[in-house]
Design a binder for these strands. Structure first.
Length: 946
RNA sequence: GCCGAAGUGGUGGAAUUGGUAGACACGCUGGACUCAAAAUCCAGUGCUAGCAAUAGUGUGCGGGUUCGAGUCCCGCCUUCGGUACCA
């Protein structure tokens, strides 16, 4: 008679597994719908209450679509390769595969507990050889293709080779990093190694030496999106630039398509903006400057060719290739010293001293292509090697950085844009009239840009060019726990793809997971493995974390296929992901790589759609209530002083007083002081219980004006993780209140997109709702559902709820759905409604939210089949219609009276009646009536002249 | 600096195209039931004044458009997220 979830939920949990209720077929007449969650990294901490937020939302949507008659694919799996498991292995010796499997088991239990409708027969695990076989296969496709800019698609490298054999590379238009032109005969005369090197400059997966993000503490390189503020995203260790031979993905080849196709997606503007920003397209010109006394030309990129008459000097990145060549004898020493100084500085150094200007003169001069004047060539840290050409023409009048540089080193400044007509405008606004600029004088900036572009092209000194901030993605990791590259090198160092029929190339067994010497992966120690092919050595680096996650959504379509990553039939049926739910932390990493891989597979004809994720919803994070440190600073005696505040900025406490901030204890010394050594020690040992998503503290090391080192901490709300002792375990909530209650409460907390702190103080309201809902079906004697015909009022309550809930599910507003259910039950309770014709459809409506209680009641209502196979109730407008409607009559918006009007009238008819009402005069009180506005269902407004 | 999102009671949050701001819930106050408590039920609850009907006021701040603005426009402030010598 009373609601007892602990009796209901285990029963149905078991039943759903036994009846394979959620198994999805690829062969059906039904329309498809694909709902995907971002699969989790199975960390040692298990699920916390923040995790399921998105999963519950997508589960509700899946169940809703299923009730509407769609064949819904709603799978789950694990992003199982990654750094934390390997860090754990280094410390404990436990093989990552073992700890990962344990974690997965735990995750699975927790997921099952919450009642998700995943089709577990399609589970994927990126660390499983049967899965990463296909990750390796896709890599080999990337290796075996180049990007043809004429056809605007990926094309087999064999076709490129045949072009080289016939005519060399002069006419090839491809995304490449090839820096010289060769003829057919030159190609034919190259040896195998030389040919391999050339092809690497075209392949979509290629190897090159370049400056990479090296993280000493993790012993590996990282991709750009894995570095935040000069620290590694995972672990928060310092990152430095280092020149290394690495595999990369030529994602830049797809920059234009990645940018343009964003327009076809139903993603939030914020997310699209982040992607656009990351791609960073800018239009401009490449211009070649002659260098005095040298044949080489200096190539620069500029978005402001109009200001070329204001170019008074040139700046090269210190790492620029021409530096050695052009530096004059008397500047040699100074330049060498400067280049040394720059390379000794870490990324963090550079970032914390952005304002400081450094540079050195090379002694060389370039010739201005329009004025013929000699202008000095400098080196400067502020010019980056890997953006544009690594060289600029400096226009100190219209570029802030150039101006600061020019002032510091006393270089000439020529004003070229007259902005007096635009007070407050900056160079960024691209407005003003040109001056001191020869034939451009008096021309508006925007016209001057296009005029100058034409001039540059007609003079043959350069051409229009588009540049991107997007860089090729670093694809090598010097780690064990990742996909091995199916690549071997022969004795000459020529790369060879492993036969795809020999895939997967599985990881060697290891016992010691410490990085090998010389910055190499631990895999390098498995010598038998490395030398398993006679005369060849296998690549010892492994693939990065994003490799397996860049295509997993395709594997779900046909998860156990061993002939292909998924069958053509399965892909043609499922097409793409209709709804993708996940966190913003993947805005530029995972989502960019997945889109790129999908487009590549599209080019090769393996997938029918140009984009993988049609609609994307970002869920916010559930944060912990916690404390944060403010103005932390190390004293000379190495103790840390500062204020600890709670989440609301109150309860100031001195560090050292009894702190409820548990994790601070982890770096207290025996005297209870926080020392820098202890902090750093703690920070570097954190791998033990370190949650992937949990930064301990977001801190920045800064030097103050006296040169003493301190750090500031600017985290207010923190993500949950085990290492912070603030995990709210969903199982405990489920045990106490039931899964239905947990699901509905997480939805009730607020909009999905918003981050919010977890607290359980409102959970009783949801629990009360479920008990109240249950009590509609029972009285003190037991089951009490009547088959009498409902009243119009009862129908109205039901259909108002159907309308509201259905609309709100579509726009992903689940908190208002829960409110609508609460209101509905309150009203039915008031009407003492126990009619089957009302309760039965209401129960189906509620089923996506609370699958257990509704299943039980559905069965008690006499249904044999599951509520999850029922038909979604349809909104019927006729029940909403009432004979008369009460309208407030307002004068200039102020309510004066109520009138009854037939609801069958149109607003126009209501308006006519209102105009002729006898007492309109009374409302208007002698003033002139201008018009009557009828807001249907809301009000009749008489507008009068005041 | 640049890009993006947001700012509503004691709290979480509603208000979908400009139309009676504060739905739904938490909390709080009072009451019923009870020896008592829990649970449940009923009533009240933006703020100010008033016994009350009621009046005034009210969506970060300052202006504006409109019969009518949380919503639209202009100028600020604050918070959060992203990004940064990107030429």
């Amino acid at each position: 008679m009373h609601y007892h979830p602990e009796n209901i939920e285990p029963k149905w949990r078991k039943n759903w597994v036994e009846t394979q209720l959620y198994k999805v077929s690829n062969n059906t007449e039904k329309p498809k719908y694909y709902v995907l969650d971002m699969f989790p990294y199975p960390s040692g901490a298990g699920l916390h209450v923040g995790h399921p937020l998105g999963y519950i939302a997508s589960d509700i949507f899946s169940r809703y679509k299923r009730l509407q008659g769609f064949n819904v694919l709603h799978p789950m799996g694990y992003d199982a390769f990654g750094l934390p498991a390997e860090q754990y292995a280094i410390q404990t010796g436990v093989h990552p595969a073992v700890s990962t499997d344990e974690n997965i088991k735990r995750y699975r239990e927790q997921l099952d507990n919450i009642g998700f409708c995943y089709d577990w027969s399609r589970e994927v695990k990126t660390s499983d050889p049967s899965y990463y076989k296909w990750t390796q296969w896709i890599f080999l496709q990337l290796y075996g293709h180049y990007y043809d800019q004429n056809q605007n698609k990926a094309v087999s490298i064999d076709e490129l080779i045949s072009v080289f054999e016939k005519e060399g590379n002069a006419s090839v238009k491809a995304a490449n990093s090839q820096d010289f032109i060769f003829s057919a005969s030159e190609w034919q005369n190259m040896n195998a190694k030389q040919k391999d090197d050339v092809l690497m400059n075209y392949r979509l997966a290629y190897r090159k030496t370049g400056y990479v993000n090296w993280c000493e503490a993790l012993g590996t390189v990282l991709a750009n999106d894995e570095v935040k503020d000069g620290f590694s995203e995972r672990g928060g260790f310092p990152v430095e630039k280092k020149a290394m031979m690495q595999w990369s993905l030529r994602i830049t080849a797809y920059a234009e398509r990645l940018l343009n196709d964003l327009d076809t997606l139903e993603w939030s503007d914020a997310l699209k903006a982040m992607q656009r920003n990351w791609i960073g397209r800018s239009e401009g010109a490449q211009v070649f400057f002659d260098i005095q006394g040298h044949d080489q030309k200096l190539e620069i990129f500029t978005t402001r060719p109009d200001t070329i008459f204001g170019a008074t000097y040139m700046v090269l990145a210190p790492e620029h290739d021409l530096v050695g060549l052009i530096t004059t004898a008397d500047q040699k020493e100074a330049v060498a010293e400067y280049v040394d100084y720059v390379s000794s500085r870490s990324e963090v150094d550079r970032m914390s001293e952005v304002k400081e200007v450094t540079g050195v003169f090379t002694g060389a001069y370039a010739r201005h292509p329009l004025t013929g004047k000699n202008i000095p060539i400098w080196l400067g840290e502020y010019v980056l090697k890997d953006y544009g050409t690594g060289a600029i023409m400096a226009v100190p009048s219209d570029d802030d950085r150039d101006q600061v540089f020019a002032k510091k080193f006393g270089l000439e400044i020529i004003e070229v844009v007259d902005k007096t007509e635009y007070p407050g405008a900056t160079a960024h606004d691209k407005v003003g009239k040109m001056m001191n600029s020869d034939f451009l004088n008096g021309v508006e900036v925007k016209e001057a840009i296009s005029a100058m572009l034409s001039k540059i092209e007609s003079l043959g000194i350069g051409s229009r060019k588009i540049n991107y901030k997007l860089r090729d993605a670093n694809y090598s990791r010097q780690r064990y726990w990742g996909e091995p590259f199916p690549i071997a090198y022969d004795k000459d160092g020529v790369s060879h793809a492993l036969d795809i029929y020999k895939l997967p190339l599985e990881l060697p067994e290891l016992e010691n997971f410490q990085p090998a010497s010389g910055g190499k992966s631990p895999v390098a120690r498995a010598e038998d493995w490395v030398n398993q092919y006679p005369g060849m050595e296998l690549e010892t680096d492994t693939m990065p974390g994003f490799a397996g996650s860049s295509w997993y959504f395709l594997r779900y379509m046909d998860a156990v296929n061993d002939k292909a990553f998924a069958s053509k039939e399965a892909i043609d049926y499922w097409q793409d992901v209709d709804l993708y739910v996940g966190g913003t932390e993947h805005a530029v990493g995972h989502l960019m790589y997945s889109r790129c891989w999908h487009k590549f597979l599209y080019d090769l004809g393996y997938v029918p759609t140009i984009e993988p994720f049609k609609r994307l919803v970002n869920q916010g994070m559930i944060t912990a209530y916690g404390y944060y440190a403010e103005n932390l600073k190390f004293n000379d005696d190495q103790t840390l002083i500062g204020n600890i505040k709670d989440i609301n900025g109150q309860n100031n406490m001195q560090v050292g007083s009894p702190i409820r901030l548990a994790y601070i204890n982890d770096f207290l010394d025996p005297q209870g002081r926080i020392t820098k050594e202890k902090f750093v020690e703690y920070y570097t040992s954190i791998g033990k219980n370190f949650n992937v998503n949990g930064d301990l503290l977001k801190y920045h090391w800064v030097k103050d004006e006296n040169g003493s080192e301190f750090f500031t901490v600017n985290i207010v709300q923190e993500k949950m993780s085990k290492s912070k002792y603030n995990v709210q375990n969903p199982d405990e909530v489920v045990e106490k209140y039931g899964a239905d209650c947990f699901r509905m409460y997480e939805m009730f907390l607020g909009p999905i997109e918003q981050s919010k702190p977890w607290d359980t103080k409102g959970i009783d309201g949801v629990n009360r709702f479920l008990r109240k809902y249950w009590s509609l079906y029972f009285n003190e004697n037991g089951w009490n559902v009547s088959s009498e015909a409902p009243t119009a009022e009862e129908y109205k309550v039901l259909h108002t709820t159907i309308k509201k809930v259905t609309e709100d599910i579509e726009r992903f507003s689940f908190n208002t759905c829960v409110s609508a259910f609460m209101m509905c039950v309150n009203e039915l309770k008031k009407l003492e409604c126990n009619k089957k014709e009302i309760l039965s459809p209401l129960n189906i409506l509620l089923a996506p939210f609370a699958p257990f209680i509704t299943e039980e009641l559905h069965a008690l209502l006499g249904n044999i089949d599951s509520v999850h196979k029922a038909s979604y109730p349809v909104f019927d407008a006729q029940y909403m219609v009432q004979d008369t409607v009460e309208y407030p009559v307002c004068v200039n918006g102020k309510k004066r009276d109520m009138v009854e009007v037939s609801s069958k009238l149109t607003p126009k008819e209501v308006q006519d009646i209102a105009m002729t009402l006898d007492n309109v005069k009374k409302y208007v009180e002698g003033k002139e009536l201008q018009r009557v506005i009828v807001v249907p269902g809301k009000m009749i407004n008489l507008v009068v002249k005041e």
